[in-house]
Amino acid sequence: MKSILALLALLIGLPVSAAQLTVELDHASKTWQTADLLKHPDAQTVQIVDDVSYKRNMTYRAVPLAVLLPGITPENHLQAVALDGFAAELTAAPVLQKHGARAWLAVEDPAHPWPALADGKPSAGPFYLVWTDPKAGNISPEQWPFQISGIKQLKTVAERFPALLPDPKLSANDPVNQGFALFQKNCLACHRLNGAGDAQVGPDLNIPYNPTEYFGGDFLKRYIRDPQSLRHWPQAKMPAFAASVLPDSELELLVGYLKHMAGRKQQP
């Protein structure tokens, strides 16, 4: 046991090495090396106020994400895949914005590595999607994927995973469909539902049971607000969704979608 712990400590303490990022678009594919991104003509130093992952102000060498996505239009859909299986679904429109909330690919320099996210954990590198002025675009914490290994252009979530869809008889602006949009933005990066989705971090939210079936009263909402306040353990990964990120009205819509899907179970 001591030898295993010693090995882990050694690995965690190893210097950061150069990495590569694969960008796969319908019309083009390119693999970027750390060094190429650090010296990219559009790279600049950006200041991030109250960084979502580090919980403090941070400074990064970063490239506007839009310049790495030639030919992408606001109607397209993207997915950022992380080393740990986190798969952030991203509508292209906010990523392409040049004003207000702006997306940047922060690049970890092996010569100047970023701090660890927590004791015994690696940094947010090698690549991290950060935002300047995120409040201007209502950017959620799930739209800040770190330890990114690749970015893909994909069909929309609804096209790829019909098992996630609410009853088709509902109107487009029905509260359940509004909740579905919030589920995609806030939950799908970590969770699957009915076996549908690409994430490999959290449990399925409908099979075998939907959380609305085993959380009584307002406990599900309380859990989403602050998971550690209900079930505390050191290895927990689910973040807290504060009202500033997910207002009460949106939380209600999200839970409404989950309740609806409890009646639409499909075995994967």
Score class of each variant (00 low, 15 high):
Ser53Ile: 13
Leu65Trp: 08
Pro64Leu: 03
Pro94Val: 04
Ala88Phe: 06
Tyr54Gly: 10
Ala66Thr: 07
Arg56His: 11
Thr59Asp: 02
Ser53Trp: 15
Ile48Met: 06
Asn57Gln: 13
Asp84Trp: 05
Val81Ile: 12
Thr73Phe: 00
Tyr54Met: 12
Ala88Pro: 01
Asn57Cys: 01
Val95Lys: 06
Ala80Thr: 01
Asn76Asp: 15
Asp51His: 13
Ala88Gln: 05
Val81Asp: 11
Thr59Leu: 07
Asp51Val: 11
Ser53Asp: 12
Pro74Gln: 02
Glu89Phe: 08
Thr91His: 07
Pro64Tyr: 03
Pro74Asn: 03
Pro94Gln: 11
Pro74Thr: 01
Leu90Ser: 09
Ser53Cys: 08
Leu78Gly: 07
Leu69Glu: 08
Asn57Trp: 10
Asn76Ile: 00
Val95Pro: 08
Met58Asp: 06
Leu78Ile: 06
Gly71Glu: 08
Asp50Gly: 08
Val49Gln: 15
Val52His: 13
Asn76Lys: 13
Glu89Cys: 00
Leu83Trp: 07
Ile72Trp: 09
Gln79Glu: 12
Met58Asn: 06
Val52Glu: 14
Gly85Asp: 07
His77Ile: 00
Leu90Tyr: 08
Pro64Arg: 04
Ala80Glu: 02
Asp84His: 09
Met58Gln: 14
Pro94Asn: 11
Leu90Phe: 11
Arg56Gly: 12
Tyr60Phe: 15
Asn76Ala: 13
Val52Ala: 14
Leu65Arg: 08
Asp51Pro: 11
Ala82Asn: 03
Asp50Phe: 08
Val49Ala: 14
Val52Asp: 13
Ala87Leu: 02
Ala66Val: 06
Ala82Leu: 04
Leu83Phe: 12
Thr91Cys: 00
Leu69Gly: 06
Lys55Ala: 14
Ala66Trp: 02
Leu83Tyr: 09
Asp51Lys: 13
Leu65Glu: 05
Asn57Thr: 14
Asn57Tyr: 05
Thr73Asn: 12
Pro94Tyr: 09
His77Gly: 00
Glu75Ala: 15
Lys55Tyr: 11
Met58Pro: 03
Leu69Arg: 10
Ala62Pro: 01
Ala93Ile: 00
Ala66Ser: 14
Pro70Ala: 04
Gln79Ser: 11
Val52Met: 14
Ala62Met: 05
Asp84Gly: 09
Gly71Arg: 09
Phe86Ser: 09
Pro74Ala: 01
Ile72Asn: 07
Gln79Arg: 15
Thr59Gln: 15
Val81Lys: 11
Leu83Glu: 09
Glu89Trp: 09
Ile48Ala: 03
Thr73Gln: 15
Arg61Trp: 00
Val67Trp: 04
Ile72Ser: 06
Val52Trp: 13
Ile72Glu: 05
Asn76Gln: 12
Leu90Glu: 07
Thr91Met: 10
Thr73Glu: 14
Ala88Cys: 05
Leu78Met: 09
Asn76Cys: 01
Ala92Gly: 10
Ala93Ser: 13
Gln79Cys: 02
Ala66Gly: 04
Asp84Ala: 05
Ala93Pro: 01
Met58Cys: 10
Asn76Tyr: 01
Lys55Gly: 01
Asp84Met: 06
Ile72Met: 07
Val67Phe: 08
Ala82Lys: 05
Thr59Ser: 13
Gln79Ile: 12
Asn57Glu: 13
Ser53Tyr: 11
Leu78Lys: 07
Thr59Met: 12
Pro74Phe: 04
Phe86Ala: 09
Asn57His: 14
Ser53Ala: 14
Ser53Asn: 15
Val63Cys: 06
Val67Cys: 04
Ala87Arg: 10
Gln79Trp: 01
Leu90His: 06
Arg61Tyr: 00
Tyr54Asp: 10
Ala87His: 05
